[in-house]
Design a protein around this nucleic acid. Structure first.
Lengths: 215, 215
DNA sequence: TAGATTGTTAATCGATTAACAATC
DNA sequence: TAGATTGTTAATCGATTAACAATC
């Protein structure tokens, strides 16, 4: 209802703010100013102020923000429902490592299922979750509201898996494969491909560029 | 010498182009047009043309690009040296999964070492690489040109590890921890934090926004 | 009160898109 | 030649930064 469209770049900074605020909260810090935040996160002072004003707007001149209130306002952006429900598809090295990570994840993200097509893996347990047969995925999705699928199957199966989860009403995908996924624009896909990330870093290392120069 | 500063957003698209071109090359495609690329990668036609012109500029009107030449031009951006050398620090779940992935990585990225501080892990082997004691890292860096460090240690050790690699002349960092790293601006850091990525996706799912609206 | 900090308006910067001329 | 595709110039859009008024 009262939602506003948050610019893409702001969305990418919100986890940074949240993470920082959580750490301060643990240290029982009460108040926080945008200057302190910008200094510690290496961002522009005005940029932080603009971001926070957009998503919270509860700052007080001269005083700053009440930390817990600001954190609450940021958290409100994450979900209308109480939990964001997640499944992992592909119980290989990466899938298993990610699943284990969920034990330490923020509680608002719940890992509801792990799927694979390898009979050796099906019915084995990772943390306390039994790996299910991928063929049961449509049934599972029909009976649970799944928000995000984490795909870490071999690249050549990725598009097929993607099509299945999209058909089953998943809204977001975290793609750990090296395959570009063709999906409808209303599905939010984020890609984590190690080769791509290393390539970007390598290019920037090489690109500490001299200036533009005739071809 | 003849390098030009490539805009940030272009750098982020290059791996996408490269990945796509590699797949076409395997299918023995000879020529490629920017229209075909943009259609398949969901990008703007002009955007692709501008990007390719910036980094290659060897397109021929009416004909398009010779695929192998274009791929070559893109690959040239990645390194001046023949290889980009990588180390992984932290041999836990994620570190191990990533190391195993290197077997299938593009050959220009070489995993030269894996480090940990856990005596249980030191001297064990992952793929064909022996895990080394983290205390030997400075010596190792002094005797090998390491370009990029992948950090996947527990969050509370991340900054310390980061400081060590930066002191030892590493130029890029792929940070798999949930800790924000404070580094000099000339070091290229990319963060892969699952919670952050899930948070971004969750916000966007919730943010299919109605329009701006009075507070 | 004076200083610190917020929120906002205007200016700048950079990226994308539209329009179009050049050409194989 | 006509059509397809490139590369470029200008226009638009969006994000960042600078300047400043408001205020606890």
């Amino acid at each position: 209802m009262c939602s506003k469209k948050i610019p893409k770049h702001v969305i990418e900074r919100i986890p940074l703010y949240l993470n920082y605020l959580e750490k301060l909260d643990e240290k029982n810090v009460i108040m926080i100013s945008s200057k302190t935040i910008s200094d510690n996160l290496g961002l522009g002072e005005v940029q932080v102020r603009k971001d926070l004003n957009l998503v919270s707007g509860n700052g007080k001149p001269k005083i700053g923000y009440v930390l817990k209130d600001l954190k609450y306002d940021l958290e409100q952006l994450i979900r209308s429902e109480q939990y964001t429900n997640i499944i992992i598809i592909g119980a290989g090295n990466i899938g298993e490592a990610l699943a284990k990570n969920f034990q330490y994840e923020k509680p608002q993200f719940r890992l509801l299922g792990i799927f694979d097509n390898d009979s050796q893996k099906i019915n084995s347990s990772i943390i306390n979750i039994k790996v299910k047969d991928i063929s049961t995925l449509p049934y599972f999705c029909a009976h649970n509201r799944i928000d995000i699928a984490i795909i870490c199957v071999p690249g050549n199966n990725a598009q097929a898996v993607c099509d299945i989860v999209v058909e089953n009403n998943i809204k977001g995908i975290l793609n750990f494969t090296n395959t570009y996924l063709n999906v409808n624009k209303n599905i939010n896909v984020r890609n984590v491909d190690i080769t791509s990330l290393l390539t970007m870093i390598a290019i920037e290392i090489n690109n500490k560029g001299e200036n533009i120069n005739g071809k």
